[in-house]
Nucleic acid binder design. Structure first.
Lengths: 106, 106
DNA sequence: TATATTTGCAACCGAACGGTTTCTTAATAT
DNA sequence: ATATTAAGAAACCGTTCGGTTGCAAATATA
């Protein structure tokens, strides 16, 4: 059972959950109200998100508040970095090309 | 069969392929040499990557060169943006807190 | 104390995943 | 003309995924 952040965000429901709890902590029941699935299905998703440290729990009586571990999201950003370098280079090359064309017009 | 970019990058082999062909186009055989799987398995991965426009083909005789469609990668970056805002705000708040502490020390 | 609520866990189900083996097609080399 | 090479397609296999139903544990309430 592979369990990394990329597998975690592969599912659209999990991405939606992440978006929901990014700003305020929520209980499983409250989260489940936003979806057309059972509470148990959401519970499973939360387990997966917990397993890869994307989410943290805060117990309060019999309720559990889930919130996003925003730091973990930076891992995706970090992976993207290598490609960001590429597309920025491409952009600069395009920029150079455009200014060359401009100069020629003059 | 869901087929979006998030599902595409969920598999570690596919992420490796993306990394490989980010800078130069490669044939399926050449790509497969970098992995401990069959060429057919790589072919399947390339099909998935093609299906969500992450990869483009260039036919050259009986060879097909695959390369990364870097623009598509920006979609992940775009999705990350909402969270980037959050972690930057957190950082600024931390920054404020730190300067407040500094001032108090003075 | 008995009952209701919140949650997680286990068992099960159909579909999708990732892989292999085998086969076909098309282009190149001998 | 024949053999070789590059690549994709199809069929199959075991595993994982996402979901459901049913149940147990813990906490709160009557």
């Amino acid at each position: 059972m592979r369990r990394d952040i990329f597998q975690a965000i592969a599912d659209p429901t999990r991405r939606a959950i992440i978006g929901l709890i990014a700003l305020q902590a929520m209980t499983p029941n409250a989260i489940a109200e936003n979806f057309n699935t059972t509470r148990q299905a959401i519970s499973k998703h939360l387990r997966i998100l917990t397993e890869c440290d994307l989410v943290k729990q805060e117990h309060q009586g019999r309720e559990i508040y889930y919130s996003l571990e925003i730091e973990k999201m930076k891992e995706i950003d970090k992976w993207l970095d290598q490609f960001r370098k590429i597309w920025e280079t491409r952009f600069n090359q395009l920029d150079k090309l455009l200014s060359t064309i401009k100069k020629q017009k003059k």
